[in-house]
Design a protein around this nucleic acid. Structure first.
Lengths: 340, 340
DNA sequence: CTGAAAGCGCTTACAG
DNA sequence: CTGAAAGCGCTTACAG
């Protein structure tokens, strides 16, 4: 009755209905002072009659802000991204910002497309889990005042804020744990070696071995796609031959999952420490020992840093925040080496 | 050099720099025909020089659409919401829409706040996992042309599109499976009974028992908060007393998880079928038998329905889509009753 | 092929 | 206390 479908009333309509000026409507809608009670009542009546609701997109265009931030994930459907999103969302909410989310599917072109689409909407800031390509495409945006923080992996080709887990330190601690339990031949199974997290965790593996005076046979290191079949084959290879490894360090959640599947049938299983915690890890037999990172905390830290930048701290040079990891001992990492 | 930080060049700036009219810039930027090559080159040069990028928020305001949809979840951080988001995102992406996401934390006020904030931004449509309260607040928006689809649970107090899993049917199949394996005293552990999914799954439980001619002792039904301690206490209560249950049906992922923790220590465990799949379910000992729903498919179906509405189908009455569930047999549901 | 004017729905800066 | 004018950065409708 008030409006045909799709034609929403505007402030102009309210002003006409109430017989007042546009600015007076604006004052009432925004609770600004300096409106007589009688006037305010008349405006409010018109608002109610028409079912008026302010169009925030229009308001924000005039204001210059968008009160929104963009979050570019690898895949909103995986647990890591999900927990990270929760952290970002909580902080964004505290700052009165809405959150755009999108996934790159680990594809650099898609990340770029998505990030630029968000920039075109003029989001106030961007939190990005990099997909791997070069981030030069963001340079003009950053120079125009865009705030951007990278999480989980640093940006490539530009200097930018980043919030990372202590990947090398965590992996080193996990591998040292295996060494402390008597292992000398330890396999490393990771995803693609050019991915920053994988490279760092491999660095931690090497550091732990070196610190213990142990040699590393390059055949103990298996990196590649994380398809279960691929990982399964790698695991079986590491466990066979003349001098098989007695323990495995799996460098992320997907690899750990695939390795667990591959190991499920075996009578005698190697010791196993995984990077990243899994939901049912404590309920497996044996319990899964992991180096856990805190993806929600990563998201929160990234968003905190983003809003610091938005709140004026845009002079200081790019920062790199590193969050600690935590070794959670549950059984699988404390299995002694199989006696030959 | 081109612009002081924060002051981005606009089409007006480009027009001035190129010495052409605003509309010509618009034509070049939008690849519209009818611009002479010479003119186009001049405009392009100005665009490059100034580092101009079109402001889509402004464009969309003029256009009337926002090319964005809102997704209101219970908690972006949990696996169900996460998978559901993936489904919604994929469809939104195919339709050239960006996605706003936010979480209600199962709080009706927060859901309302969030949904209305998204409406104020004039999102084209809304996908909502209802938090429980009344949805009358959306009525004016719906009448103004907002498209909204509810997922996982139907809306309350209004007639609206909904995409649901076959909760009753799935639960019935899960409980029938336990009955087929010889169980007659079966416990039902669920979350809050006023939640639609819980109520439906309980209905399925009762239907399966009735169909088998089995009585239901109301003490076998435990509903309430899903805090692990609460669920653990309920599980222990069901397993004790004169005639303990020999099998459990746990009505959602959180309950199943808590029940598994409570059962972990026990020497002789009851049979268990859970509603919702879990990531490591196959790797437990015994494997976890579940009634799985497909949250990603729910999200996809909801978004498909939303875009059908946006693409013109807004005359037909509200639809209710129901997606099937799938019983996945892995071991825990096939344990025979303990002999007395 | 080109562009000046009006408008999307609001707010800002200003005058009464 | 009140409101007309100009403007946010674009597109639409129209005239040349």
């Amino acid at each position: 009755m008030n409006s045909r479908s799709g034609a929403r009333p505007t402030m102009k309509d309210v002003a006409a209905t109430a017989g007042v000026g546009l600015k007076t409507v604006s004052r009432v809608v925004n609770d600004e002072p300096g409106v007589s009670p009688a006037m305010a009542a008349r405006v409010q009546a018109a608002i109610d009659e028409l079912g008026f609701r302010r169009n925030d997109s229009a308001r924000l265009l005039r204001t210059g802000s968008t009160a929104s931030v963009g979050l570019v994930l690898e895949d909103i459907g995986d647990p890591f991204s999900s927990a990270l999103s929760r952290g970002v969302e909580a902080v964004a909410r505290d700052h009165g910002c809405l959150l755009f989310t999108g996934s790159s599917a680990e594809d650099a072109d898609r990340e770029r497309e998505l990030a630029l689409a968000l920039c075109a909407r003029r989001v106030d800031g961007l939190v990005v889990v990099p997909a791997g390509g070069d981030h030069g495409y963001l340079l003009p945006e950053l120079e125009s005042g865009l705030a951007a923080v990278f999480v989980d992996r640093p940006a490539t080709g530009i200097e930018a804020d980043a919030v990372l887990s202590d990947n090398a330190g965590g992996a080193r601690a996990g591998v040292a744990h295996l060494i402390a339990h008597g292992h000398r031949r330890i396999g490393f199974v990771g995803d693609l070696p050019h991915i920053h997290t994988c490279a760092e965790r491999l660095r931690g593996y090497r550091a732990a071995m070196r610190a213990a005076g142990l040699p590393v046979d390059e055949r103990w290191i298996a990196t590649g796609p994380t398809a279960p079949a691929t990982v399964g084959a790698a695991v079986r290879r590491l466990l066979s031959g003349a001098a098989p490894v007695t323990a495995l360090f799996t460098a992320n959640n997907r690899v750990t999952l695939a390795a667990l599947q591959a190991l499920a049938g075996l009578p005698r299983r190697p010791a196993l420490v995984g990077f990243d915690d899994l939901e049912l890890a404590a309920l497996l037999t044996p319990g899964l020992t992991v180096v856990a990172q805190d993806p929600e905390a990563l998201g929160r830290a990234a968003a905190d840093l983003l809003f610091e930048r938005l709140d004026g701290d845009d002079g200081t040079p790019p920062r790199r925040v590193e969050l600690p990891t935590r070794l959670i001992v549950r059984g699988s990492g404390e299995v002694p080496p199989a006696t030959a």
